[in-house]
Amino acid sequence: MRERLENNDSRVALQPFILAERNRMLLRQMRRIRDEENELMKGVAGWETGTLYGEPVYHTTDPDEWTEPTLGELWTHASEKNIKERESWAFWV
């Protein structure tokens, strides 16, 4: 029990540092996929980035409101091999 408490202490103390770095990585990746999609779909008439021909995912939320992207959305433009590596990453650590 004492050792579990000690381990939990260590994780709790580290979480803010991990979360801060993760948030920056997430925002950077979101900008990257948005730029990629703008570049990729610029020849398609009527296409709007992040929507299906102007049909948004949510109708009731403000477009600037924060919604967490899913793993598949973040890794859309990656290769299949990299996506599979990322998805199974948690099983190897």
Binding site: L27, R34, T49, P63, P69
Partner: peptide
């Protein structure tokens, strides 16, 4: 749970570089 649209404000690269 949605991919970023062009209406969403995202910080520039310089703000994220730490």
């Amino acid at each position: 749970m949605s991919a970023p649209t062009n209406l969403m404000t995202l910080p520039m690269e310089e703000e994220l570089t730490v």
